[in-house]
Write a protein that binds this DNA or RNA. Structure first.
Lengths: 336, 336
DNA sequence: CTGTTAGCGCCTTCAG
DNA sequence: CTGAAGGCGCTAACAG
């Protein structure tokens, strides 16, 4: 592998001249410049980013850590981050945490060790406080994505989870629904907690008793099937609200096992939703995150932070879209 | 940030001793060793991976480039790669190419520049030959995943696309189907080409004329809707085979627009399939890649390659599973 | 406008 | 068993 020394020799100039034509960091006479360029071509020289990063302590790259880039909502955020990074000439390094605090910690550390200029992080469920404390302590440039934490001194980008859940409940209440089954999942995840809060807001708006509502929480997705089935079997709820895609899958499966139809027997709405929403039968009313834009916004915040490290952290909430479809079309069925 | 010099000073030893306790690269007396460890603790020292990589030219990390980690099949491969990498203490750096040769090239280059020990690559549709030639030329340790190319001197891991398509056709032929509509997509992607080849194998096995078959190819997914609708409208095909998930989505949408039911009016089968296959109505007969295992195998091949750089390249084909579901249950409807 | 030189933080011979 | 010293490839003063 050719180095700058080789190029310098081939061009008959000093190594610093080579460096300067490479980086455009000072004027060099067109003829010498041309000789250097030729020498680069001829030697097949390529910059050693590592050595470069070591000197500059800057890499023009950023890291992104999500729990699973395969989940639709995260996939879209990843795309948003990629696009905005590309526009700004930044390289993106991506890592999955699998919702595991240990892996997440390792991923962030690896990224930082590789001198990414900053990290965008959708925290794993149970991981935030200690990890964030560390990151804050070492002054790492971090922006939090999707999973927002109050009173954390970081830039944050998320969706208006609470408000949009409230809107959804209002919509259902207007159709006569008074008793809900909320599949809330792991409420240690702030997103889900916010959605649950929004549910109670909505219930209050509708002047119905919070006591009549069924809420299913639980850390482990795979063990949610049974409680869901049980709650559904009682048959008091006329509307089911799932707070994320995997939770919706669990809910739909339970409904099918019980042979209860949507929307005839029970209304169904979900957050995030499935890919190809038009192919899904019945078409599901969905609250969709502006995931792509969230990714874009995260990159912007990160860059602004790097430029002005000492301004105070900002939190951005983007509006979620309530997409009404068949699954909530019917009015509340009368219950036995 | 504390460096080895700080640690050495704090421990009252030389910097080389520090290096050696850090890497366990030669014996050091327990007492000195202890002092060094204490000093590390106390100074909050952390190794500079960049400087380290620069000296060692090795990073214990690998890169993975796919077109979109958000697509179900790739997501699963990513998981497989992650797991096997974790088991072996390797850090994984992930990148999406968005099926764009330019982005792919950049991604691979970035990874290599960051001195990953090797790269696992699912080539973008149109990108392979020139990129692969370069990679071969610079002797980069690369294993090809999913998208396999004949006569390329790389280790490769894929699925038995041709055979499984043949099996699928045989299954459909046994139910009386003689005229197929194959949504083949971008046949520059080797996977899709192989599946198409397998289709013709199957047709031959069934002793039906290849001329009666309708094949839809095309680079641009979004413009496939119209030809699909046209082909379907003619109504000669009794079975539709989609060669990937997005193609299946296009096919199903067209069927719905025409109000043709599956499997009553037409049988439907797809490769790769959707997440949550049980929730999809109708349940789709699917040929599923062993994507996770492919990821695992790719890491293994890569590591073996690094250990024995000069052995000849191997190609591994993993078996795909034909999952029969409702969408191909009925016998071939008689055509008008 | 160009060249010389001192490190960045680390690993690794080579001496002691 | 430990230390001293060179150099990986590059950038950025500092000189001329």
């Amino acid at each position: 592998m050719a180095t700058m020394v080789d190029v310098a020799r081939a061009a008959g100039v000093s190594i610093s001249t080579v460096s300067h034509v490479l980086n455009g960091t000072r004027n060099v006479e067109p003829p010498t410049r041309a000789r250097v360029l030729a020498a680069i071509e001829q030697t097949g020289y390529r910059q050693d980013t590592l050595a470069r990063a070591m000197r500059r302590s800057k890499t023009d790259s950023i890291g992104l850590v999500v729990s699973d880039a395969g989940e639709p909502a995260f996939a879209e955020m990843v795309h948003g981050v990629e696009q905005e990074a590309a526009v700004r000439g930044l390289t993106l390094l991506l890592a999955n945490s699998a919702e595991d605090p240990e892996r997440e910690r390792r991923a962030v550390r690896t990224l930082l060790e590789r001198r990414v200029d900053g990290v965008i992080l959708a925290c794993a469920a149970d991981a935030a406080p200690p990890l964030l404390a560390d990151l804050q302590h070492e002054k790492a440039p971090v922006v939090l994505l999707d999973r927002l934490y109050r009173d954390q001194p970081f830039d944050q980008v998320g969706a208006d989870n609470r408000d949009s859940m409230r809107t959804l409940v209002r919509h259902l209440a207007a159709r006569g629904h008074r008793r809900f089954l909320v599949i809330a999942g792991d409420v240690r995840v702030p997103v889900l907690e916010e959605r649950l809060d929004g549910f109670f807001d909505g219930v209050r708006d509708a002047h119905v008793s919070a006591d009549d509502q069924q809420i299913i929480t639980g850390v482990d997705r795979s063990s949610l099937g049974e409680p869901i089935a049980r709650a559904l079997a009682q048959g008091v709820a006329t509307a089911v609200i799932a707070c994320s895609t995997p939770l919706a899958a669990a809910g739909l499966r339970a409904l099918e096992d019980l042979d209860r139809k949507t929307p005839a027997d029970v209304a169904f709405a979900t957050f995030d939703g499935f890919d190809y929403p038009d192919l899904f039968q019945p078409r599901l009313t969905t609250v969709r995150q502006p995931a792509f834009d969230m990714g874009v916004a995260a990159v912007r915040l990160l860059m602004e932070r790097l430029e002005a490290p000492d301004t105070s952290p900002r939190t951005v909430r983007l509006h979620q879209d309530l997409q009404l479809r068949e699954s909530t079309e019917a009015f509340a069925p009368t219950v036995a």
